[in-house]
């Protein structure tokens, strides 16, 4: 087989010159000097505007009488790819199934939102919230009470029929 050599044509000077890019960059700089617009968010004084599909800290929905909506079906620990949900089911004296233990390890969580998607009773949600810094690791394991206390807005799930959330 014959060896073929591909000959590359050198681009013309107009394309290789750095002058154009330099001027473009400088023009932006000067534009901001003349007309400064704010790009830095002054967090925490200013709070970011989170997208409706932002997936952050979990929260557990509660019934009007304060019981968790969770029925301990076990689907979220099953579906959880990070295996960060621990659930022990039980039954109260009215015969309602409820979680005796419900813990989410927010450190392990990858915030995929599948727990919310799989929940048959819309009890567990990921939330539009991200500020969950703590001083110790074990504080990142949220128990049931703490999940129920969360009051941030919940995430809007992606709807295939409305893929742009409009």
């Amino acid at each position: 087989m014959a060896i073929s050599v591909k000959v590359m044509r050198r681009p013309e000077v107009g394309r290789t010159s750095y002058m154009r890019a330099t001027l473009k960059g400088m023009s932006l700089t000067f534009k901001h000097m003349v007309n400064p617009t704010k790009v830095t968010l002054q967090y925490p004084e200013d709070q970011p505007d989170l997208h409706p599909r932002w997936r952050g800290t979990h929260r557990m929905e509660v019934h009007a009488d304060g019981r968790p909506k969770c029925v301990a079906c076990g689907l979220c620990p099953t579906v959880c790819p990070a295996n960060c949900i621990r659930l022990v089911g039980g039954e109260d004296d009215q015969g309602n199934r409820y979680p005796i233990v419900y813990e989410i390890d927010e450190f392990r969580c990858i915030f995929c939102g599948m727990c919310q998607e799989v929940c048959p009773v819309e009890a567990i949600h990921v939330g539009r919230h991200f500020e969950n810094a703590e001083y110790s690791r074990d504080r990142f394991v949220y128990d049931l009470d703490r999940l129920m206390e969360q009051d941030h807005p919940t995430t809007l799930l992606w709807d295939p029929s409305d893929s742009r959330s409009e």
Partner: peptide
């Protein structure tokens, strides 16, 4: 067995 485990687990 009530509420002890889910069958798929």
């Amino acid at each position: 067995f009530l509420h002890k485990a889910r069958a798929w687990d």
